[in-house]
Design a protein around this nucleic acid. Structure first.
Length: 451
RNA sequence: GAGAGCGUAGCUCAGUAGGUUAGAGCGACAGUUUGUGGCACUGUAGGCCGUGGGUUCGAGACCCAUCGUUCUCCCCA
């Protein structure tokens, strides 16, 4: 057997890491619950049909496909070879693969809603905290297996949902101690811009190009737009659009001057104004260069960036007014947000934002000083455990030195020593390992001690 | 899918211009010390130098391939 290893882009999590991650999960979950969202879980795998075509061409390539079983079945060899030929030219793949790992939580949710819309009470609000998988090349802040925490509401056009979701973002990150900027834009504004610049079919080209503004600069964006078939006049409108800056109010005024007489743009602007005025969040900023790749968004879109650290977005979302129609259930609008736990973890680790309390494991180590002593220890431990004190006994008879060092390494704050003397006198020696102080307590005093 | 860097002890790394028996720190284990840890000292274990091929009298070092890993672009959380 070769050296054991992990699949690329996946990780093991040790006790410390799991505790820190749980802190993030619990914080986000509690905020979701505060806003009336209910939990949902879906399978790790979906039918390939459910996922394909929902994330754009790039997204489709990153879906982890699961090989069908039974491909070595001799009686089906010819059929399987024929099917594989189709795979090679990018066609129908059912004979080779018909299942895939979940790529995000939104499409499985849409599938769930489409399957169960007859039973659900609308508006239906759900949250979901599960891993997703992407066949991406791993790099900083990018993994092949990572968790998303999504909250979505379907069956409502109300902008109050956007207001609440923006507030969920703000509240959760505040509770985590992470300073963030919540960036918003509207697909309606981007659509209006596209109408003015070569037609609605150019929207994807335009959004892809402008999304790169802060990375490659305005000149390169203009070059890319030219390559994508826009003329000089159209590009100059986009340049004006991208040069809009200032605070939210100033940006909206400038945008109205540029595209305000377009009906779609006006609707998008109204929605953004509503959201900003309603929430009054200080870190909610308009960013007209925000586009987001996923094709299904139709209204306001969100993206969350952590301040003071170099990291891709740690959350994103938006409104999709017609997501379930791809599953033949039309007219169910929705809006949702997602938290990227693994990136939030990396940010918190880099900025040292995890509270120390997160790490308390065993509170008390009982020394093992002999057969009769350890029996007494066991009885005492059971009584402490009944009072929710986390304690354990050293696994074997050993020198003090060894037992102390073990406690140090496991960062256990208290040691309790029960030797022959204490056994006889029915008391214990309690030592605070951090301060070095120790005192003798009766068994009764120990049971009421505040650890 | 495109590009770059790095693979030497459990971990972090050093290894000079290609030259005898590959080193350090940390960690592990044992002892000094069988009723009091963190410190110190002493000792021990631990390496197909990622893998395969090539150049050379001689390769951890140079060349090629391969695998792994990290990072960048694309795209994304």
């Amino acid at each position: 057997m070769a050296k054991p290893s992990l699949p690329q882009g996946t990780r093991d999590f040790n006790a410390e890491t799991v505790r820190k991650r749980n802190f993030i999960f619990n914080t986000i979950r509690s905020v979701f619950e505060l806003y009336g969202y209910q939990p949902l879980e879906t399978p790790a795998m979906e039918n390939l049909d459910t996922l394909m075509g929902k994330y754009g061409d790039e997204g489709d390539k990153l879906i982890f496909k699961i090989l069908n079983n039974g491909l070595d079945n001799v009686s089906k060899h010819q059929q399987i070879k024929d099917d594989f030929e189709k795979v090679l030219v990018g066609k129908n793949t059912k004979g080779i693969t018909e299942r895939a790992l979940r790529y995000d939580l939104t499409i499985p949710f849409a599938r769930y809603v489409a399957m169960n819309h007859g039973q659900l009470t609308f508006p239906f609000k759900r949250y979901q905290i599960q891993p997703v998988w992407r066949a991406d090349r791993p790099q900083r802040g990018r993994y092949r297996e990572f968790y998303q925490c999504d909250a979505d509401v379907v069956g409502s056009y109300s902008l109050i949902n956007e207001v609440e979701l923006a507030t969920i973002y703000a509240t959760a990150f505040e509770k985590l101690g992470v300073e963030v900027e919540i960036k918003i834009n509207s697909r309606k504004i981007l659509a209006a811009l596209s109408e003015l610049c070569g037609g609605a079919d150019k929207m994807i080209d335009i959004t892809i190009a402008i999304d790169k503004l802060d990375k490659i600069g305005i000149e390169k964006v203009k070059e890319e737009l030219l390559q994508r078939g826009l003329n000089e006049n159209q590009i100059s409108i986009i340049e004006k659009y991208l040069s809009i800056n200032g605070n939210n109010e100033e940006k909206l005024i400038a945008l109205k001057n540029l595209v305000g007489d377009n009906a779609t743009a006006k609707k998008g602007i109204d929605e953004i104004e509503f959201l900003i005025n309603y929430t009054k969040l200080k870190n909610l900023n308009i960013d007209f260069t925000l586009a987001r790749g996923l094709n299904y968004y139709t209204g306001i879109i969100f993206e969350v960036k952590a301040n003071n650290v170099q990291m891709g977005s740690i959350g994103g979302g938006g409104r999709y007014d017609d997501l379930t129609s791809t599953f033949d259930v039309p007219n169910i609008p929705g809006v949702g947000i997602s938290f990227g736990v693994d990136r939030i973890y990396d940010v918190m680790e880099e900025l040292k934002l995890f509270p120390v309390e997160v790490q308390t494991a065993t509170q008390v180590l009982f020394f093992n000083l002999g057969e009769a002593e350890s029996r007494a220890v066991f009885d005492l431990m059971q009584q402490l455990r009944a009072k929710n004190i986390r304690c354990e006994m050293f696994h074997e008879l050993a020198k003090f030195d060894k037992q102390f060092k073990w406690a140090d390494k496991k960062q256990i704050p208290y040691a309790i020593i029960i030797g022959s003397k204490e056994l006889e006198e029915k008391n214990v020696v309690l030592k605070n390992l951090k301060s070095g102080e120790q005192k003798t307590l009766t068994n009764e005093q120990l049971l009421s001690f505040e650890f």
